[in-house]
Amino acid sequence: MAKPIYVLNGPNLNLLGSREPEVYGKGTLDDLRQRCERKAKALGLKVDFRQSNHEGELVAWIQEARTDAAGLIVNAGAFTHTSIAMLDALLACPVPAVEVHLSNIFTREPFRHRSYISKAAEGVICGFGALGYELAIEALAATISPGKAG
């Protein structure tokens, strides 16, 4: 069986739908998971969708992806702006990664303008809400299986 795309979500994304819906939208994390699964299925792929509020767990999942995933989509939440540990794990991971953010981090508070993990990403998608995850799946599909992107 083909390896899945890991979709890793960081702190507070479990609160989607209730936390600042004017910034992050009204959809829940489960709604986001379902969108990702539908998009991946349409492209002949599978996703392994996860969320953690713990930096170490996210790092362990990135390390796991070294052998068990075809690609990574990472929304590190606030760890985007603080986690050298996640950057180091991503740099050590040979599979392609896309950084995703629901909001446009460059139109928000200045501390959000810096991403530590971008250096390890093939690309960054921000500001398109849940659609950004679907775009990331398409980008990875094109990267890992040329001709599969929609």
Score class of each variant (00 low, 15 high):
74 V>H: 01
62 I>W: 01
102 L>P: 01
145 S>I: 15
13 L>S: 05
37 E>P: 00
36 C>Y: 05
126 C>E: 04
137 I>N: 00
91 L>Q: 09
117 I>A: 02
117 I>Q: 00
120 A>T: 05
53 N>V: 13
138 E>A: 06
61 W>L: 12
28 T>K: 14
112 R>L: 08
105 I>G: 01
143 T>R: 14
72 L>W: 05
98 V>Y: 01
123 G>F: 06
31 D>L: 09
120 A>N: 07
58 L>D: 00
131 L>F: 11
27 G>Y: 04
20 E>N: 10
7 V>D: 01
71 G>Y: 06
3 K>M: 11
144 I>F: 07
12 N>L: 14
22 E>W: 08
62 I>K: 00
6 Y>T: 05
11 P>Q: 10
66 R>T: 15
133 Y>D: 01
37 E>I: 12
17 G>Q: 10
91 L>M: 13
69 A>H: 04
144 I>H: 06
136 A>T: 05
33 R>Q: 12
64 E>G: 04
134 E>W: 08
23 V>C: 09
149 A>H: 06
36 C>D: 05
61 W>E: 01
124 V>C: 09
118 S>L: 10
146 P>T: 13
132 G>M: 03
29 L>H: 05
28 T>V: 14
100 V>T: 05
62 I>C: 03
3 K>S: 06
15 L>W: 06
23 V>I: 15
63 Q>T: 11
110 P>E: 12
68 D>T: 15
3 K>Y: 04
90 L>F: 02
77 G>S: 02
95 V>T: 07
123 G>W: 06
139 A>Y: 03
105 I>Q: 02
83 S>F: 06
13 L>D: 02
30 D>E: 12
38 R>S: 01
75 N>M: 05
86 M>T: 12
118 S>D: 02
11 P>T: 10
22 E>N: 13
13 L>M: 09
118 S>W: 03
70 A>R: 11
137 I>G: 02
130 A>L: 10
26 K>Q: 11
13 L>I: 15
57 E>Y: 04
80 T>G: 02
124 V>W: 04
17 G>T: 05
99 E>S: 13
14 N>Q: 05
18 S>I: 15
52 S>K: 10
119 K>I: 15
60 A>G: 08
62 I>Q: 00
12 N>T: 15
